[in-house]
């Protein structure tokens, strides 16, 4: 999965930075299962095709509808320089349903270390 472009952006009331991303393919249930490895997922399956919200604590959240080729990401502003790279990595490592967990898990550990240091100083 790849990001084709970002469509809109805004600063949110909670201080986060929102970007809408246009993807090269639709978001599938399998992709959401993949996301669950890296954060928490909530879903309202009865709304439209299914509304989902993924939260990677201290980093970003993603929300959207299943079977749509776009989603909205809210980055925690203080660590956005690290986490936006990780988002791109996540999509790349998903590899159309054959995820490269090894690479991504390694990047996740490194990311969370940097995030912790930035946010909590240790």
């Amino acid at each position: 999965m790849r990001i084709l472009r970002s469509n809109r952006h805004k600063y949110c009331a909670d201080g986060s930075f929102m970007k809408e991303f246009i993807l090269d393919t639709e978001v599938t249930p399998e992709f959401l299962d993949f996301l669950k490895h890296y954060g928490s997922l909530e879903m309202l399956p009865g709304l439209g095709e299914g509304f989902y919200k993924f939260e990677k604590s201290d980093c970003f959240s993603i929300k959207g509808f299943l079977n749509e080729s776009s989603f909205e990401v809210r980055f925690k502003k203080e660590v956005m320089e690290f986490t936006s790279d990780f988002l791109y990595s996540m999509l790349y490592c998903y590899q159309n349903g054959k995820p490269d967990y090894t690479t991504l898990n390694r990047r996740d550990v490194a990311l969370m270390e940097r995030v912790r240091t930035r946010l909590h100083g240790n």
């Binding site: 949110c12 309202l44 439209g48 509304f51 919200k53 929300k63 959207g64 509808f65 749509e68 909205e72």
Partner: peptide, 20 residues
């Protein structure tokens, strides 16, 4: 509230205002 606004916009094409 922002999720409600998102759902209304994306699912129903209804524009409201959310947030503060």
């Amino acid at each position: 509230n922002d999720d409600v606004g998102y759902i209304l916009a994306r699912k129903d094409n209804i524009v409201v205002r959310t947030g503060l």
